[in-house]
Design a binder for these strands. Structure first.
Lengths: 212, 212, 212, 212
DNA sequence: TATGAATGAGACTTCATTCAT
DNA sequence: CATGAATGAAGTCTCATTCAT
């Protein structure tokens, strides 16, 4: 994910052809199939028919659950990112010190992508191969995560641990940019090393940059 | 650019049409046209015919200078990135202190992309919409820049300014990831603010992270 | 046909679209359209779109039934030649004397092509405008016919009518080469005379060559 | 060659741009290059530029000696066939008996193509991949050879050796069709056996067909 | 004569989406 | 709800030919 995408908005549709049923079992099936197929074949070789086959449904069925192909991608990102953020938020709540909170954020970010390599490929590489419109929608989804990072930074400043001179936006871009870059490198190196082990040194550098 | 691409390799062409041609006026014309067209229309709407028209040459002429459409992109990146790095290297040579060197690197990176918004769009957004093979070739090109960053980090450690505990790879990922994220945000916000002004605060944070 | 092509092999298609489809009505439609279009316009001016239009289907539909353009040609040949041979075989079974069998073979060969001038153009002229790979596949199909000719020759020898000194391969090449040349000439002369009437004199010469 | 092509006619061209210079050294070079390139790469992969390169001339130079690409093919056939026929005619003159003449004709036909495998590929396979117009021009060239065959047949009848009931056209088609088929088979079998050795049995069959 | 860089028309094939069943 | 056969628009690349030098 680039720091440019994340949200919970859903396209509304009216009348009979609404996608109200988005919560069916097939909806999940298709999302999972999409992650798998895109991770395996790459964005440009992931035809709707291939996703449908992997999901065990007919091509046309896709369009009962998603407006179009792009909508699969955005929904995929929304689904996965929603859970991604939720987990981090839950974990953060249990920590008291700001240093711990930052470590947890970094660790959880790395952990979750290490645990789901297919998802990592999709978020770090394949999902970026999209047009501007799609990227903007993805950014809406990403915003939730960025706000979470902002919260941590602001809390650190409030508590007097982080310098009050810090430009929050830039600090957030540093945190997200660094972690994102670490993950992308890991993916491109075909995850040949332990990603979560990078959390400690990353935490060290970022904390040093932020603290008074 | 993702921290994953940069080099000087040139693809070979068969027969008479070899590298010699790449120095022709038309070669430059096509590269410039490609940057403009891709920045304007996005990667997926930049047909070869559109680039040819913008360059003022026939469609077929493109193929006298480039192996295929993808080759235009890679060459574009090589061409532009070669100059991009060269400028930074030149500027770095003039600075003595490591703090200044880091500031110059950040500033030049931001400056060059601010000065060429079309190029910024292409490197930050459009060029990432490529398949894995293309991305690997781009990464080769990017390597030169990453090595440059490594050089600065190692120098800082040598001089006793940066902590010797620093993991160079991670430090490099932080520096590149942060700057890259700053630029991408600027591009996605449609460059409504001065990008170079971000250099100072970015420098402040990164320097703080690295110094003993 | 050159003495070099004939078979029943079917190319495989991946996924759902397998041979089942080849029995659809559209499959036949496309084959018939291809014969007509190629006979009228020549191989090199028979675009897929033209064939699709003649068949009354969309361009893309062609690719649900055929792997590519070449596959239309091979399938066409297989389809038509299969019936061609079958008819001759059926007719031969009804004849007792070897002389009659040879006459039937010649007559049927000429008759069938005279009855379908479009097919004659395609087999004698257009289908030979293909690359080596295609020609080899066509030859596979043709083999069935050549074997049929061999059968007749061997029977003649067995029955003591044909000389046992005969080189079967050469005799077969004479029979096929002669009939093929007669048909090609008829086609190139724009079928201005009755082709079947050539059967008698051809039969006379060939029989004389073979008999003891 | 199909029994459908051969002549000495040359397209006339007027004014300065005439191809009067067709007898230059380069003319021969290009013809030889064309035979070699077409035999090696097949008709469809024999671009004008490839022939030019093989001939050691510039692409444009081709057009000083030939009207267009097709003209190279026709000229090639004319050149080669002219010599082909001449040789057979010369040889025939030395023979007295009609049986000997027929044997010489068959042998020479096979011999010349066996001696020049590149030419055999071109005449038996590649040259047939042409459009109707080209084929008609080639047939004009071939006529000379067919007339030669007719001459032998008529002589045989005159001398009372061949039956006077023979249809000369059909006899000629049998002779040419048989030899042509024998050669084509040899080429497609990648000339793995001695072609000239086929002359005797072919002669035996044809002579038997024709004699009283 | 000779060159060879430039031209530009032309076609195969893919694949997201629809809709009759 | 589900299907999957059918659609048809759209784009990359080749290569015969030209023409300024």
């Amino acid at each position: 994910m680039n720091e440019s995408s994340f949200s919970k908005t859903r396209c509304k549709r009216k009348g009979k052809n609404t996608l109200a049923k988005r919560r069916g079992q097939k909806y999940e099936q298709i999302i999972e199939a999409a992650v798998k197929v895109i991770a395996q074949n790459g964005y440009h070789h992931s035809q709707v028919s291939k996703i449908a086959k992997e999901a065990g449904v007919a091509d046309g069925t896709i369009y009962l659950y998603f407006k179009n192909k792009e909508d699969i991608l955005v929904s995929l990102f929304q689904e996965k990112m929603g859970k991604f953020i939720q987990k981090i938020e839950d974990e953060l709540a249990g920590e008291s010190s700001i240093e711990e909170k930052l470590l947890v954020l970094i660790t959880m970010h790395l952990q979750q992508l290490q645990d789901d390599y297919s998802l990592a490929i999709v978020t770090q590489l394949e999902l970026r191969q999209s047009n501007l419109e799609l990227r903007n929608r993805i950014n809406e989804v990403l915003k939730g995560y960025l706000k979470l990072i902002d919260t941590v930074i602001l809390l650190g400043i409030e508590e007097g641990i982080f310098s009050e001179d810090i430009d929050v936006r830039i600090a957030r871009q540093m945190i997200f940019g660094t972690i994102d870059e670490v993950v992308t490198n890991w993916v491109m190196k075909e995850h040949k090393y332990n990603l979560v082990l990078q959390a400690k040194p990353v935490h060290g550098l970022l904390l040093k940059a932020l603290t008074k």
